[in-house]
Structure formats: C-alpha cells, structure tokens
C-alpha cells in the first residue's frame, strides 16, 4: 500500500507544453506513471508523444478521466490553474511551480477548505510511490519500492539525499512526499503523518524539516499524541543566519522563532528520533527501524 498515489493514479499535466512540463512528463511516463492528458490553453488538439493536449482541465476530465494533476503553470497563472483543476473535480493537485505570490496561496488555501481536493505544494518536488507512480520532478531511480518507510519533507534535493541514504541501507519506501518550501502549503506535515499512520504498509516515517514557521513543532505534538509508528526527524538550517530567506520563501528565522535548534529540541521532547548529522541519517534509520527491515 501507499498514500495519495499508486499504480491506478491517472495524471493530467497542467502546463504540459512548457519546457519543464514536457521534460518531466516524459520522465514520469518512463517511470511508469499513467499520464493520460495534458492541458495548455490554446493548444487543445495537439499532443505530446501520444498524450492528448486539451484547452481546459474539464475537457481532459471528460475525455480521459484523470484524478490527479501535476502542475507546472508559471507563477502568474498558477492560482487560476489550481482553481480550474478543483472545479473540474481533480482529487489531488501537485503544484511544482516555484515563486507563487504568498497572497495568492492564502486565497487558494482558504478556497480549498472543505473541498475534497487535496493540494500538495507549491514549490515542491512532488510525490512518488516507488515502483508504481511518480508525480513530480524527483529522480525515480534512487527510490526502492516495497516500503516499509514513508518520507515527508519540506525540501527537494535534501529529500533525494535522504531517500538515497535509505535505499543504500536497503530501506525501501512506501511513499515519499515533498510538501514544499513555501510559507503556505496545501498539505502539511500533520496531514501526511496522519495518512502514514493509517497506512498498513508504512511502519515508520522520516520527516525532514527546515528553519522557519512552526510546522515541525506542531507535527511533533501530533506525533506524541496520535502516532504509534516511530518517526526519525532531521532539520536543516542550524547555521542559517536570522532574518535571511534561505532560498525557500518559507525558510526564514524571524522574530527569534523558527530556529533549527528550537525545532530539534521540541521534536526530541515529543519522542521523535532526531538526527543532527545528515551523513548518519541512513545509519540511524537502519537502527530505529531495524525490527521492520528484512
């Protein structure tokens, strides 16, 4: 089993004719993901390889029945594209786009409240259920199918590093999710932790955080109160200077809150196995999850 995506997931790519959209659509196809349609307004009727391109998400849904969207639309048009996908009934929207204004995301977040659509991102690498379905820009080959570990992270390449170490230690993954580096996220740590806790095949979780906000602290509280499965944690940014945006819009220590040190101590307090040294994360997981590994 897995969470959010599996071999039956049918994907429509919004912004499929752009450079990034095209490249990653092909990468996902090559991994085995069912990409059933693409959408670019004005380019309906064209196709990418054998994938039909439509003018609207509604057309794509009517003709090809996707349930998931992978979105590469540029920042200026991203909010509009998300609304279009929601109204066409897409259940899961993966927003890869980086650089969407935060006020746009505030509105989208509120708009999504109470709707059945889940959004992951923005500014995220996407989601992968190894061996079944990759909806995102991560390198597929570093993943090891079959579980038993779920991975959730605010980062992109740092997630690849973590997954790579897991696979090197022969620790497979059920599903790996990048929730994105922006201050406002469609899906948060807690949503993913909750889903992993319910997933029978996931036996343990690796949670990768970074400086800024209170999401890691809230997740730690959730772990203590609601989870039986072991969680290994990592937080990037121990050396980050306060007040500076460290690449990600959400990675900023402001007003003395959101430091890596304070996150790490709260996570430890609430029972998360925190690894402070990235080079040893794989070893630590092998140790903490040993009883679930073959």
């Amino acid at each position: 089993m897995s969470i959010f995506v599996n071999k039956n997931t049918r994907v429509v790519v919004q912004g499929i004719t752009g450079k990034e959209g095209m490249f990653h659509t092909r990468q996902c196809m090559a991994y085995g993901t069912q990409i059933v349609a693409g959408v670019t307004p004005g380019k309906g009727g064209q196709s990418l390889d054998d994938i039909p391109v439509f003018n609207t998400v509604r057309d794509a849904v009517d003709k090809t029945q996707p349930n998931c969207s992978m979105l590469f639309v540029p920042p200026a048009f991203a909010a509009d594209a998300i609304v279009e996908a929601v109204e066409a009934g897409i259940e899961l929207i993966i927003v890869i786009t980086e650089g969407i204004p935060v006020l746009d995301m505030l509105k989208i977040k509120r708009y999504l409240h109470g709707k059945k659509t889940r959004m992951i991102g923005p500014n995220c690498p996407g989601i992968i259920t190894p061996g079944e379905c990759k909806v995102g820009i991560m390198p597929g080959h570093i993943h090891q199918p079959g579980g038993p570990i779920g991975v959730v992270s605010r980062s992109g390449t740092l997630t690849y590093e973590v997954v790579y170490q897991l696979s090197n230690h022969h620790i497979g993954q059920t599903t790996c999710i990048g929730i994105g580096g922006d201050p406002i996220q469609g899906t948060q740590f807690i949503d993913v932790l909750e889903a992993f806790e319910k997933d029978a095949d996931t036996k343990g979780i690796v949670m990768v955080g970074e400086i800024g906000g209170q999401a890691e602290e809230q997740a730690a509280e959730f772990v203590l109160k609601n989870m039986k499965k072991p969680v290994v944690g990592f937080v990037a940014g121990l050396t980050a200077p306060p007040g500076r945006r460290m690449g990600h819009a959400g990675a900023i220590i402001s007003g003395g809150t959101g430091t890596a040190q304070s996150k790490i101590s709260v996570m430890r307090e609430k029972g998360i196995h925190v690894c402070e040294n990235l080079g040893r994360l794989g070893e630590m997981c092998a140790d903490v999850f040993s009883q679930y590994l073959k």
């Binding site: 992109g156 740092l158 580096g181 980050a240 690449g247 990600h248 890596a260 040294n277």
Partner: peptide, 27 residues
C-alpha cells in the same frame, strides 16, 4: 537546492569548519 544547501552548511560546521556562504544553484 535550498534545503540541501542549508544541510551542507550545517555539515561543514559539524566537521569543524565554518561555511563562507549559502549558495543554491537551483534545479
């Protein structure tokens, strides 16, 4: 990548050196 860049800076410090910068060349 920003996350890996931050983690790399941390690693440099843990190894006993001090990072001269944060530099993310991007994807």
């Amino acid at each position: 990548g920003a996350g890996l860049a931050m983690a790399t800076m941390d690693m440099i410090k843990q190894a006993g050196a001090e990072p001269a910068n944060f530099l993310d060349v991007g994807g």
